[in-house]
Simulated assay, not measured.
Amino acid sequence: MDSLFGLLRVHVQRGINLAVRDVNSSDPYVIVRMGKQKLKTRVVKKNINPQWNEDLTLSVADPNLPVKIFVYDKDLFSLDDKMGDAEFDVKPFIEAVKMHLNKLPSGTIITTVKPARDNCLAEESRVVWENEKVVQNMILRLRNVERGEVELQLEWIDIPGSRGL
C-alpha cells in the first residue's frame, strides 16, 4: 500500500459530436485506463452527444503513467466499434496538488496546460483551486477517428495512510 500516492477521480462528463457507428447514431461508452487499471462508464443509447456524468476512480502509484481514454460503440451482435482514443498526462495536475495550497479564493487558476502536438487537448486546460480542492477540466480531442471530443474533470483524493504527494 505504501507505493500508492492517492486516488485520481476522473469525472467523465460528456462526449461532443462523436462519430456515427450505427445507422445514424451510436451507443457510446468510455473506458479509462491507467497502467493495469481499466474502468468503464455506462452505455448511452443512440446519442453522439452523450452525457455520462460518471465518476471513475483510479489509484495512482506512478504519476508518470498517462491516463488513456477509449470510446466505443456498444454493439449487441458483433465486436464493439472503436470511436477514437485519447490520452493525457497527470503530471501538471499532480504538481499543482503537491503545492499544498489552501485558503485561496475559489476559482484561482494554479496552472494552465496548452494544447500541443504531444497532448490531446482540444483547448487550454486549467488546473483550478475550487471549493477547497484542486480540479482540472479538460476537453480531449479523440484520435484515430473522424471526429469527436470527450470532456473530463480531474479531482485528487488523498488517502489516509498512503504516502501522499
Results as ranks from 00 to 15, higher is better:
19 A>G: 05
20 V>S: 07
21 R>I: 05
24 N>I: 08
25 S>N: 12
27 D>Y: 07
28 P>D: 04
28 P>N: 09
29 Y>Q: 04
29 Y>I: 14
29 Y>T: 02
31 I>G: 03
33 R>T: 10
33 R>W: 12
33 R>Y: 05
37 Q>V: 05
37 Q>Y: 03
40 K>G: 10
41 T>I: 00
42 R>S: 14
44 V>P: 07
44 V>I: 15
44 V>C: 01
45 K>Y: 04
46 K>T: 05
46 K>E: 10
47 N>L: 00
50 P>Y: 05
53 N>H: 08
53 N>P: 00
53 N>Y: 06
54 E>T: 09
54 E>L: 10
55 D>N: 14
57 T>P: 00
57 T>S: 08
57 T>E: 03
57 T>Y: 10
60 V>D: 07
62 D>A: 09
62 D>N: 15
63 P>D: 11
64 N>H: 11
64 N>R: 15
64 N>A: 11
64 N>W: 07
66 P>I: 11
66 P>L: 15
66 P>T: 09
68 K>D: 13
70 F>P: 09
72 Y>S: 12
73 D>K: 01
74 K>T: 05
75 D>E: 13
76 L>F: 13
76 L>H: 11
77 F>Y: 12
77 F>S: 15
78 S>F: 08
79 L>A: 15
80 D>V: 02
80 D>F: 14
81 D>P: 06
81 D>S: 09
81 D>N: 02
82 K>S: 13
83 M>P: 06
83 M>G: 07
84 G>Q: 09
86 A>K: 00
86 A>Y: 06
87 E>R: 15
87 E>C: 06
88 F>C: 02
92 P>D: 06
93 F>N: 01
94 I>R: 01
96 A>D: 06
97 V>W: 10
98 K>P: 04
100 H>F: 04
100 H>S: 13
101 L>H: 02
102 N>R: 15
104 L>F: 02
104 L>G: 03
106 S>E: 06
106 S>V: 02
107 G>L: 04
108 T>K: 07
108 T>D: 06
110 I>R: 09
110 I>V: 11
111 T>L: 07
111 T>M: 07
111 T>C: 09
112 T>D: 15
112 T>N: 11
113 V>E: 09
113 V>W: 03
113 V>I: 14
114 K>R: 11
114 K>E: 14
115 P>Q: 01
116 A>V: 07
116 A>L: 13
116 A>N: 09
119 N>A: 03
119 N>F: 02
119 N>W: 06
120 C>L: 01
121 L>P: 02
121 L>Q: 04
122 A>E: 10
124 E>R: 11
125 S>G: 13
126 R>Q: 07
126 R>Y: 05
128 V>E: 04
128 V>D: 04
128 V>A: 05
132 E>A: 11
133 K>W: 04
133 K>M: 07
133 K>G: 06
135 V>S: 11
137 N>E: 12
137 N>Q: 08
137 N>V: 01
138 M>V: 04
139 I>R: 15
139 I>W: 05
139 I>L: 15
140 L>G: 03
143 R>F: 03
143 R>Y: 01
144 N>L: 12
144 N>G: 13
148 G>E: 00
148 G>N: 01
149 E>G: 01
151 E>R: 05
152 L>G: 02
152 L>C: 03
154 L>V: 08
155 E>M: 09
156 W>P: 01
157 I>P: 03
158 D>C: 06
158 D>S: 14
159 I>W: 09
160 P>Q: 11
160 P>I: 08
160 P>F: 08
161 G>A: 10
162 S>T: 13
162 S>N: 10
164 G>K: 03
164 G>Q: 13
